[in-house]
């Protein structure tokens, strides 16, 4: 720390342009290291301290508020084109601590720690009394809806059989009585029409993911399911990522993010963490 300043750090405005640059680097870092769920956008810079680093550079100690977007971490859509989840969808907020080094105009994340929490049910009810609330993934309706939706998708698909990778979001809606789910699928080496035992179908070496949204309406005497999936182009598999085992160990600076609702029975998908989002931009096929 420089002599005579007492505190050893400099107080700067949270909306200072350099602080904003450091915050955006931090949020990009967060998104590149998320293994499941949805990418986040910067909502507010809560606090900042700037520490002088010897012999060169400064370290930004940041507290950031982020918001969940509608783009899954496997979705190659540029972050700028991703929408923030609205309150009516029971939005999830992230609270993050970062240390970002700036040296010679380059920003490097040294430390990160994030936690996420959904908005309170009371707040959602205030703005939308009939909106659904986030539901745990092991809820009976959620499991049933995902299965029905995946079966419907595969039944209409004459080609590859797609397997469930992750349930990413689920809401039970009171009116009309229905269940909304968002989940990730991946192409396998089985064909949709001939699969007998899905457990024997293996994900392709060159991963091809799809992101699905489904709605199952519970009606008297039956149910009605609708599903739409966006299948992304094949992603070359980074040599360092192992999708068959548990989530890959992350480096010391990698953020830990708690998801708002627990995921069940899911393998850790291969994420774009080894590449920048820009390097994965491809036109989606539906």
């Amino acid at each position: 720390a420089p002599h005579g300043t007492g505190q050893g750090f400099k107080e700067v405005a949270c909306d200072d342009p350099e602080v904003e640059r450091a915050a955006l680097v931090a949020v990009n870092y967060l998104n590149q290291h998320l293994l499941h769920g949805f990418r986040h956008l910067l909502n507010r810079i809560d606090k900042v301290k700037v520490w002088f680093r010897r012999p060169l550079g400064v370290v930004y100690e940041l507290e950031l508020d982020t918001l969940e977007t509608t783009c899954h971490v496997l979705d190659p859509t540029p972050l700028a084109n991703c929408s923030v989840r609205q309150l009516t969808e029971h939005a999830v907020e992230g609270d993050c601590d970062f240390h970002v080094l700036e040296q010679d105009g380059q920003f490097t994340v040294l430390y990160s720690q994030c936690h996420s929490n959904p908005d309170s049910a009371e707040d959602v009810r205030k703005v939308c009394p009939t909106c659904g609330l986030l539901t745990p993934f092991n809820d009976t309706n959620v499991v049933h809806t995902v299965k029905a939706a995946l079966d419907a998708f595969n039944a209409q698909n004459n080609g590859t059989y797609f397997k469930l990778v992750e349930i990413s979001r689920a809401q039970n809606v009171p009116l009309p009585v229905s269940t909304l789910v968002e989940f990730v699928v991946a192409a396998t080496d089985c064909t949709a029409q001939e699969v007998t035992d899905p457990a024997k179908c293996n994900l392709l070496a060159e991963k091809q993911y799809g992101f699905c949204k489904a709605n199952l309406v519970h009606k008297l005497g039956g149910e009605e399911v609708s599903v739409a999936c966006k299948v992304f182009q094949k992603q070359p598999q980074p040599a360092s990522v192992n999708t068959a085992g548990p989530a890959p160990a992350v480096d010391q600076a990698a953020p830990a993010v708690d998801q708002a609702a627990p995921a069940v029975d899911q393998a850790a998908p291969a994420g774009p963490q080894a590449d920048s989002p820009a390097s994965l931009v491809v036109g989606p096929m539906v």
Binding site: E11, V12, A13, C14, D15, V19, E20, L41, L42, N43, R44, I45, D46, K47, V48, L67, V84, L87, A91, E93, D119, D123
Partner: peptide, 27 residues
């Protein structure tokens, strides 16, 4: 000592440095 309002030369309110602006909405 009676001082007229506005004649004390008080500084304008200090703008807090943080938190920064909310970009989307506060939850």
């Amino acid at each position: 000592k009676v001082v007229q309002p506005g004649s004390t030369g008080a500084a304008s309110p200090v703008v807090p440095l943080c938190p920064g602006r909310v970009r989307h909405f506060k939850i």
